[in-house]
């Protein structure tokens, strides 16, 4: 497979995530869009790791191509942590204002 196919796929997914963040107002959906963006990046990282596995340098070291996948692993770790805290915040917010509309929380304005 050509690497460009993966790049374009990741970009499309990533942009869908961005558009989701822009057009939706439900905090949970926005959060999910962020997860989608993370996953698009993960996919691209894995694709690049496999691209590097084709190179001659990869023959010398077994670890050469797996670094990017370790990186993906850590991204998942961070994402899991983030989700736990983020959802807690959303629950908290819902309990206080009984809505998950992000525009309702425009207190930053003043």
């Amino acid at each position: 497979m050509d690497i460009k196919a993966y790049i374009i796929l990741s970009l499309v997914l990533f942009t869908i995530g961005i558009v989701g963040v822009l057009v939706r107002r439900n905090a949970i959906i926005i959060f999910m869009c962020v997860e989608l963006m993370l996953n698009a990046v993960n996919l691209l990282l894995v694709a690049f790791s496999k691209m590097h596995a084709m190179s001659t340098a990869a023959k010398a070291s077994a670890n050469f191509a797996s670094d990017a996948q370790i990186f993906v692993f850590f991204i998942m770790v961070v994402a899991a942590a983030e989700v736990s805290v983020g959802l807690a915040i959303i629950v908290m917010m819902y309990r206080n204002v009984h809505t998950v509309d992000v525009n309702f929380l425009n207190r930053l304005k003043n």
Binding site: I18, L22, V102
Partner: peptide, 14 residues
């Protein structure tokens, strides 16, 4: 521009 709405900020960022 400073509407205080997160969505608008993200839009501007994009």
């Amino acid at each position: 521009l400073q509407s205080g709405q997160v969505g608008a900020y993200v839009l501007l960022m994009v």
